[in-house]
Amino acid sequence: MSQSNNFTGGFFLGALLGGLVGGVAGVLAANRVPREESNASFGQLSEDLRQNLANMSNDERMEVARRGLEDKISELNAAIEDVRQQLGSTNGNGRATEYEASTTDS
């Protein structure tokens, strides 16, 4: 019975000290990370494009982001279509896959 009490006390003391040491280490690590400027997300863009984005309103920025996402989605759809065609030709003899049959029915 006395071993059980020692274990429980040791467990809680270890959890408390571990949390304290972990918290201090987290605070120290967070303070060492440099603060990024708001324009740092534009780091990979050209200077002209960066200046244009800085002068745009939030609605205009959202529209540019939406168009960019639509372009990426169309690229992904084209890549998926190419892979599906390649797999369809290797799977055999011009048979339509389940996906192709379901998309042509609608």
Rank of each mutant, 00 (worst) to 15 (best):
T103A: 07
A79P: 01
L17I: 02
E98T: 09
R50A: 14
V83P: 01
K72S: 12
G10W: 00
R84I: 11
R50N: 03
G9L: 05
S46G: 14
L45C: 05
G10P: 00
S46L: 07
E63I: 13
L45I: 10
S4R: 06
S74D: 14
R32S: 07
A30K: 04
A30N: 07
A30F: 11
T103S: 09
A65S: 09
A15H: 00
S106W: 04
G26R: 03
G9K: 01
A96T: 08
T8F: 04
D71H: 04
E100G: 02
K72F: 13
G43T: 13
T8H: 03
M62T: 04
T104P: 03
A29G: 09
L16M: 09
V24I: 15
N58V: 13
G26K: 03
E70M: 07
A78F: 10
V27M: 08
D71G: 10
P34A: 07
T103N: 10
S38I: 06
F42S: 01
N93M: 08
V21S: 01
R35F: 04
R67T: 13
I80T: 08
S38A: 15
S4P: 00
E70F: 10
V21M: 02
N58R: 05
E100W: 03
T8N: 01
G18V: 00
R67G: 04
L76I: 15
Q86E: 11
F42R: 04
Q86L: 15
S2N: 09
G23E: 03
S102Q: 07
A40C: 04
S38M: 15
V33S: 06
G23V: 01
D59C: 03
M56K: 07
R95E: 12
E75K: 09
G92P: 05
A25W: 02
S74N: 14
L49W: 05
Q44H: 15
G10N: 04
M1F: 06
L49Q: 13
A25D: 03
D82W: 06
G92F: 02
Q44K: 09
S102V: 13
R66P: 01
L76D: 06
A96S: 13
Q44I: 12
N55D: 12
S89Q: 15
S41Y: 10
E63L: 14
E60S: 10
E98P: 05
D82A: 14
F7A: 15
R32E: 14
G68L: 09
A15P: 00
S74C: 05
V33K: 07
S38R: 09
A65H: 03
F42K: 04
Q86N: 08
L16F: 05
N39L: 15
T104L: 14
R95P: 03
S46R: 08
F11T: 06
